[in-house]
Simulated assay, not measured.
Amino acid sequence: MPKQRLPTGKLLTLAFHKPYDVLPCFTDPEGRPTLADFIHVPGVYAAGRLDKDSEGLMLLTADGGLAHRITDPTEKLPKVYLAQVERIPDEAALESLRRGVWLGDKRTRPAQVRLLPQAPSLPERPVPIRYRKNVPTSWLELTLREGMNRQVRRMTAAAGYPTLRLIRVAIGPITLDGLQAGQWRMLSPEEVAAIRQPATSPA
């Protein structure tokens, strides 16, 4: 990505489109791809995680208060995911995901979940998912307001529909729009202010 002139004296916040197979951190003793391969901005840190085998939006910031707003589940900031799953969930399965499913000894919060009528327009993943000839796939859009470890994958698996590909497309008001995999952009003061706005409850 072309070098950008960075503002000085400000707490910077970036939106980054994390590619598949990239760790959500800046260092790795095993030498695997990390954020440092794409982002050369001093002082910013990932506000939240996105698993190595997942793709999509991450926010990085030098503002500790903003990072808390993004990551603390009590803030209820919505995060939107697209999940390609094995088979086609019926309405009962979708409703169970909406109500919340048990993951170990904890039940997930109510979520917004819908079955997409067709596959979203997305670039191919560098490592294609493993297709099984006799097993169809479908796409779900899920909006969560918490951040349990590998939550979307665990939720769909618990409902009987394992996730094959997972992309986070929005965090609060910030979306992936205009960012290709591996690209980042600086958030404007207005966008940062919008993240700080209190979250509204899901319908």
Rank of each mutant, 00 (worst) to 15 (best):
P2G: 00
K3M: 08
K3I: 10
L6I: 12
T8P: 04
G9Y: 14
L11S: 04
F16E: 08
H17K: 07
K18T: 01
K18I: 04
P19R: 04
V22A: 06
L23W: 00
L23C: 03
C25I: 14
D28F: 07
P29K: 05
G31N: 09
R32D: 13
R32E: 15
L35N: 11
L35I: 13
H40V: 04
V41H: 15
A47W: 10
A47R: 11
G48F: 00
R49I: 00
R49V: 01
L50E: 01
D53T: 06
S54D: 05
L59R: 08
L60E: 01
D63H: 04
L66I: 00
R69T: 03
I70K: 11
I70G: 01
P73E: 03
K79D: 00
V80D: 02
A83V: 02
V85E: 10
V85T: 11
V85D: 13
P89S: 11
P89T: 06
D90W: 13
A92C: 08
E95P: 10
R98M: 11
V101R: 13
V101S: 05
V101A: 05
L103H: 03
G104I: 06
D105L: 10
R114N: 05
L115W: 07
L116C: 12
Q118Y: 12
P120Q: 02
P120H: 02
L122G: 10
L122Y: 06
P123Y: 12
E124G: 10
E124D: 14
R125A: 13
I129P: 10
K133G: 15
N134G: 04
N134W: 14
V135D: 10
P136H: 04
P136K: 14
T137D: 13
T137F: 08
T143V: 15
L144D: 02
R145K: 06
R145Q: 15
R150A: 13
R153L: 03
R154L: 03
M155V: 03
A158G: 05
G160K: 01
Y161D: 05
I167R: 12
I171F: 00
P173N: 07
P173S: 02
L179Q: 08
L179K: 09
Q183Y: 03
W184G: 05
L187Q: 12
S188T: 15
E190D: 15
A193M: 09
Q197W: 00
P198V: 06
A199V: 03
A203D: 14
